[in-house]
């Protein structure tokens, strides 16, 4: 009987880690579509020479693009933060440092999730058409 082989970390036994394991794979699949779409639009079709305030204002005039960007923000931050949590758990051995680095990670993730959501929801263009 050979041991089951996984390419990522093995499927965990306890509930939280099992949900986290599934979340990484499901959000990962969605992120492939969302991120590749985002990068093709922003870096291939357009590029940093044309992306400015008016570009964002025109894009966010559509509720659909706001929804797209918010889903991307939400999934990318949670997928990234959960991935780095696992990395910290593997490499930061001392208990105190582990608690500290994970606390910093969660704080940054939480603040940016709030700031990002705030700007996507509340943005109103100013000085347009002038």
């Amino acid at each position: 009987m050979t041991e089951r082989v996984y390419a990522g970390r093995p499927r965990p036994g306890n509930n939280f880690e099992l949900y986290s394991w599934f979340f990484m794979r499901i959000s990962g699949l969605l992120l492939i579509l969302l991120v590749i779409g985002h990068m093709v639009i922003m870096h291939i079709i357009n590029n940093v020479d044309v992306i400015d305030y008016d570009f964002v204002a025109a894009r966010w005039a559509s509720i659909g693009w706001r929804a797209y960007d918010w889903l991307l923000l939400f999934l990318a931050l949670l997928h990234g933060a959960n991935g780095v949590r696992v990395v910290i758990d593997d490499y930061v051995r001392r208990k105190g440092w582990k608690v500290f680095t994970v606390a910093v990670l969660y704080t940054f993730t939480f603040i940016l999730l709030i700031l990002g959501s705030l700007v996507i929801i509340t943005f109103e263009p100013i000085g347009m058409g002038s």
């Binding site: 305030y53 990318a76 991935g83 700007v119 100013i126």
Partner: peptide
């Protein structure tokens, strides 16, 4: 993965600036 998250933190912060008008964002 770690590299992309570090960039993402900065990128969300710079996008947040769009809420402060064209001068700062541009």
């Amino acid at each position: 993965g770690v590299g992309i998250l570090v960039f993402l933190f900065g990128h969300v912060a710079d996008t947040f600036l769009v809420g402060f008008g064209p001068d700062l964002y541009n």
